[in-house]
């Protein structure tokens, strides 16, 4: 187990380096530079700027510089926010992204699992069908549409929650729902199908026939087998949250990593774009790793297979 974990960590680091290299070369072969704007810069000024940021050096030398920076955890100054270091920008934005993503994931799990179990048990009843239908509908709605609906109701009709900005936790409630609800619908579907299988299984019927207490039956023979796919889904779910947060951060004006990701690429802020890409890759790898470790815990057969 330990050896396998080390191997996974090694692969994770290798993945980060690979993505870093790819991002560097893809970005640098794209047309246009950080200082190409509507207003032309004086050629001498442009030259001085390129010199200061080492953009006048050969490609490989620049890559070497970026790589050594990565190993030291120093991405250099941002080319757009020229008076600020990339690491400062990342350090400011990361906690907001983690709070946003973590809360959304929590909502997805807290809503999705119970709803999945409920709809499995009441698959043929009207209320079960309604919850199931609601989940399917949520799945079909893009998160910015959900954002518009929630804003219309909670910010403008009821005036309970602020429409945007960074204040307290109340500013995060709507973004959490926008990101978390579509995921909860996916979890609902996963849990529902597994739980229905479990409810129809021999093991469940046997345990019921044995007269075990219902709580134990539920936990051992329904909940536990249903959680496997949810854990497997955590990796892709984190990816969905990371990418989904691009839109949600913009709509709710939350200064997380998501908006940086797009903006840095569009403004050819090479250093910041590399920094955000590396952080995203690292986060995504870490989430997948954690999900895999958890899955092995829940279902030892997986570890035996791997």
């Amino acid at each position: 187990m330990k050896f396998r974990l080390l191997r996974r960590i090694f692969a994770w680091i290798l993945g980060i380096l690979l993505v870093h290299a790819l991002a560097f070369f893809m970005m640098r072969t794209t047309r246009g530079g950080p200082f190409d704007d509507a207003r032309a810069l004086d050629p001498l000024v442009l030259q001085a700027l390129e010199q200061r940021y080492g953009l006048d050096q050969p490609f490989l030398a620049q890559y070497g510089h970026a790589l050594s920076g990565l190993l030291r955890g120093d991405f250099g100054p941002s080319l757009r926010y020229r008076d600020t270091q990339v690491s400062t920008l990342l350090a400011d934005a990361l906690p907001i992204s983690l709070l946003l993503g973590g809360g959304a994931l929590l909502i997805a799990l807290l809503v999705g699992i119970p709803a999945g179990l409920y709809t499995a048990r009441r698959a043929h009843a009207l209320d079960g069908k309604m919850v199931y239908g609601g989940g399917t509908l949520l799945l079909a709605l893009p998160n910015f549409v959900i954002a518009g609906l929630l804003l219309a109701v909670f910010s403008f009709q009821l005036k309970w929650l602020p429409p945007a900005g960074l204040g307290g936790l109340q500013n995060f409630l709507l973004p959490w729902l926008c990101l978390g609800l579509p995921l909860s619908a996916q979890i609902l579907l996963l849990v529902r199908s597994k739980a229905r299988q479990a409810l129809a299984s021999d093991a469940f019927r046997h345990a019921t026939a044995e007269g075990l207490p219902p709580r134990i039956i539920s936990r051992r023979y329904v909940l536990r087998p249903s959680l496997g796919p949810v854990l497997a889904f955590l990796g892709p779910a984190s990816a969905a949250i990371l990418t989904g947060s691009l839109v949600i951060e913009k709509v709710f004006a939350l200064p997380g990593l998501g908006t940086f990701f797009v903006q840095a690429a569009l403004s050819r802020d090479y250093t910041l774009a590399l920094g955000v890409t590396v952080v995203y890759t690292a986060l995504l790898g870490l989430c997948t790793l954690c999900a895999d470790v958890l899955m092995a815990r829940v279902d030892p057969r997986l570890e035996a297979l791997s």
Binding site: K159, P162, P163, A164, K250, V251, F252, A253, T259
Partner: peptide
């Protein structure tokens, strides 16, 4: 001075009196 990339967000904040 709030940074607001989206004009829609800015409009929402104005309409909400923020």
């Amino acid at each position: 001075f709030l940074t607001l990339e989206s004009q829609f967000t800015a409009l929402n904040l104005f309409l909400a009196g923020e």
